[in-house]
Computed example of a mutant assay.
Amino acid sequence: MTDIYIFDRKSVNQHHKRAKAQIEKHDFLFREIADRLGDRLMDIARDFPKALDLGSNHHILKETLGSRGGIQDFTTAKFCPEEYPKLSESKSSAKDTESSKAIEIIAEIIPVASRSYDLIISNLCLHWVNDLPGILLQAHQCLKADGLFMASMIGGETLKELRACLMEAEMDIQGGVSPRVSPLIDVKDAGALLQRAGFALPVSDFDRLEVSYANAFDLMKELRGMGETNAIHNRTKAFTRKETLLRAAQLYQEKFSDSEGRINATFDIVYLAGWAPHTSQQKPLRPGSAVERLSDFLNTEETKLT
């Protein structure tokens, strides 16, 4: 049970619940990245019959993946708003919970028995997790030997344009800046967390998507429709002033519009992949065991250090 509270879990779930009713109008990013995850899964020449969707509150990932990766048994694990499990919930076994094909993750504890899944996959969910190292460690423990973990997260410099404009607008109108910027992971940190969690052959990389909107208000509406609005635990609870939003929209139009007058928004998607250790996996060679010199490969002379 985590003692880290970067995000207000109740607010995150409220935002997602509000968005779920009309998610099909704002699901382009979820479907695009789910499809890219599916393509990466298809590049691996093996099947993953039993899979766990870690964090989704809708069926987009399941629908998009279909049977890619040889998935036959698909279970969804959804983060719940409660910080602590109720007494009746704490008595239920992992086996009972899994049988319903829908798992409730309470207090960021995944109620799954060790070595249960061939594949754990997560699509644009983990950037709302308070204890990301803890979730990755649990995911590692839930995988069968030689099982695969794959995830996509919003990270990097996502929405850097909107962030800059809101910050400047708040300074201009209100004379200060409120906490509204979520901490976002970068590629190097993602790879380090995979190693820390015990994954073998860890890989992290990212894609950058540039999306255009008619104006800043259309972008904000899209983020609300996706359920991706501010849920920082220490955020200011009051509504953002109208004057601040108008000023931010004006700054956005001035600084980040294209030749057609549309504004551009950046989405950086960080991908993570790692395997539960197994004896069949590749391992690094022992230091000093190389049979050829790097200088021969580069066609250059080797210089000894003195």
Rank of each mutant, 00 (worst) to 15 (best):
E104S: 10
L219G: 09
G261E: 09
I33N: 02
D296R: 11
T2C: 07
T303N: 15
S122D: 03
E108M: 14
L132D: 00
D189K: 15
F79T: 03
N130Y: 07
L29T: 03
M150A: 01
R40G: 09
P81G: 05
S88Q: 13
Q282K: 11
F297N: 12
E157C: 04
C165H: 03
G175D: 03
K188Y: 09
T97F: 14
L245W: 09
F30M: 05
E32W: 02
I71A: 04
F48T: 06
P81W: 13
L305M: 15
L162V: 05
L223T: 06
S152A: 04
Q138R: 04
A190N: 13
E302F: 15
G147L: 02
R115V: 03
R224Q: 09
E108W: 13
I120W: 08
S182K: 11
S90W: 13
K91G: 14
R68C: 00
H278Y: 11
S204M: 01
L305H: 15
A216I: 08
R18V: 09
D47C: 02
D47T: 02
P111S: 08
T240I: 09
D146P: 00
T75H: 06
G70F: 06
I120Q: 04
S289D: 09
G147K: 01
I60D: 00
I121C: 01
N234D: 15
Q174S: 05
R9T: 09
K101Q: 14
N299P: 05
D39R: 02
E161A: 02
E168T: 03
M226G: 03
A214Q: 14
E168M: 03
L124C: 02
K25N: 15
L52Q: 10
G70C: 01
T266P: 03
Q22H: 15
A290W: 11
E170R: 00
G261M: 02
H127I: 01
K283A: 06
P287N: 08
R31Y: 07
A45T: 11
V203T: 07
G191Q: 13
H140W: 00
T229F: 07
D96N: 14
Q14E: 15
A265T: 04
F149C: 01
L245C: 12
E260T: 13
C165F: 04
S116R: 10
E222Y: 14
L137S: 11
A265M: 07
I269C: 05
Q174L: 02
I121H: 01
R247N: 10
L52I: 04
D218K: 15
T2F: 12
D8K: 12
E82F: 10
V203A: 10
N13S: 13
R247P: 06
K255M: 10
F297T: 15
C125V: 07
K17D: 15
T266G: 04
N299F: 06
I106E: 12
K20F: 11
P183G: 12
E222L: 06
P179E: 06
A200S: 03
